[in-house]
Structures are given as C-alpha cells and as structure tokens.
C-alpha cells in the first residue's frame, strides 16, 4: 500500500504557492478589517499574534511539502534536466519543481509577515 505522499504529484506541486497565497490574503485582509473597524489607533497586538501564528502554520506546511519533494527529487542520484519519458524522471522533475517552489513560497511567506513585526499602527 502506498503511504500519503510516497509518489510525487501535481497536488504537491501547487500546495506551497497556494499556502503562500492564502497566508498573504489572511495577513492583508485581517489587518485591513481590524484597521477599518477600529480606526487609526487600533491595538495591533492581536493582529501581530494572529499573523505570527498563521506564519508558523504556513511555514510548517510548506517545509513539510518541501521535505517530501526533496525525497522525490533524490538530488544525489542524477543531475537535471529530468526530461526522459520515464516514471523516474517524472518523479524527479516534479520533486525538484515542488522543492524549488517550496523554497520560494517559504521566503514569500516570511517577507509578507515581516511588516507586521515593524508597523506600529494603522496609519
């Protein structure tokens, strides 16, 4: 029996950027809603905590996807490009693509969350 994630597939490929997009929406929508409802002097501490928690969850999910992808890629076995019409190359191609997207998405998630650390109020 195959365990979850034993074989690379397209769902793993789109998961990291999707998590990044959801995290982005969460950060901006939460901040916009709280600032619109509470005015310029809104207390931002709850937003900072919420964005911090969302960032940790998103980062863990992306790292998990990236770790699975790294295993599918098996970088030590063969150098890219993986362009032979074989199951092995398909697996390695999806693996490396997912791994690189995971790295990009992780950086994206951290960059999106950084302003919440520094911005002091809604102005």
């Amino acid at each position: 029996m195959l365990r979850f994630g034993d074989k690379a597939n397209l769902w793993f490929l789109i998961a990291p950027p999707t998590i990044w997009a959801l995290h982005f929406l969460f950060c901006y929508v939460t901040a916009a809603v709280i600032c619109a409802k509470s005015g310029l002097s809104a207390d931002l501490r709850p937003i900072q905590i919420a964005i911090g928690a969302a960032t940790v969850v998103a980062a863990l999910l992306i790292v998990a996807a990236g770790w699975k992808a790294y295993r599918h890629w098996r970088p030590s076995s063969e150098l890219p490009p993986y362009d032979d019409p074989s199951d092995d190359d398909r697996e390695q191609f999806l693996g490396i693509s997912t791994f690189l997207l995971s790295c990009l998405s992780l950086v994206g998630v951290v960059f999106v969350a950084l302003p919440a650390l520094f911005i002091a109020d809604c102005r």
Binding site: V107, V110, F111, L114, P115, L117, F118, I119, A120, D121, R123
Partner: peptide, 16 residues
Amino acid sequence: LAGLLIHGLRLMPGLR
C-alpha cells in the same frame, strides 16, 4: 533582499 526589506521596514514607523 531580506536585509533591505528589514532595513526599510525599520525606517517606516519614524515616517508616521
């Protein structure tokens, strides 16, 4: 880019 982003963000509260 991370260094520039952090440096820029640190300057922002002073502007407000």
